[in-house]
Nucleic acid binder design. Structure first.
Lengths: 114, 114
DNA sequence: GCAAAGTGCTAACTGTAGTTAGCATAATGA
DNA sequence: TCATTATGCTAACTACAGTTAGCACTTTGC
């Protein structure tokens, strides 16, 4: 079921780093940590502190909350606190043109199947 | 203005513990950590890992997010600026995989600029 | 062909988180 | 009065997070 959160954190981080087109050293420098350490984190050999995680998240411009969840440090977003419905948010977003709104909704629906 | 988050964490924790009518040892046992360590945390001598923080939070039945913010580990609630934020909705949508989330965010961001 | 620079990795070290053992004081109760 | 128990604290240790130095392998450019 839920994959090991700690070892999974590594591959998640690596994924995000690659998607951001960053080398290990570049990402490490952005996060202000050493590249061997980031390497060890990505391979699941070390479990970074939350401070480090936050720094990495900032460096990769991704959500710290997301990272914490993957690190098993924060409990998964409880469905009970009723996160805003994404579809609804898109529909009512004033910053989107109608065309953009439609496109974004299409992408979203293709993902969640509906 | 904003007090030092790290040293402030200690007094915040102590406050919460006293409000819960727990002795140091009781709180430590509930959190599954040693009482000297909790003592040092409360006095700002040690900075606990996020895992420990989470355990303490659970023991005191308080919000882990709250604690993380006080620990300076999580940035203060960001949704103040945009009440119903599409970006936020996408980020916290449990139906999306991380890849999909990233992709959708990329599309959205390309639309609204930011 | 071969420097030069970029890739990720290993080894060995340092610092600090978190431990156990035990101290001093204050409150309870026989 | 004196043992007992709970309070928080200090000291000394262990484990591991995070460091620097440097290796082997590709890729780029002259």
């Amino acid at each position: 079921m839920t994959p090991n959160p700690v070892s999974d954190l590594g591959s998640y981080l690596k994924d995000q780093r690659l998607q951001a087109q960053l080398s290990l050293r570049q990402a490490a420098e952005r996060a202000g940590i050493s590249n061997p350490y980031l390497s060890q984190i990505e391979r699941g050999l070390k479990r970074p502190s939350a401070e480090i995680l936050q720094a990495i998240a900032k460096g990769l411009a991704i959500s710290a909350e997301q990272l914490y969840v993957h690190a098993g440090i924060l409990d998964a977003p409880s469905d009970e606190d009723a996160p805003v419905d994404t579809r609804q948010a898109i529909k009512s977003d004033p910053r989107l043109s109608d065309k953009q709104r439609k496109a974004l909704l299409d992408v979203y629906e293709s993902y969640v199947g509906d």
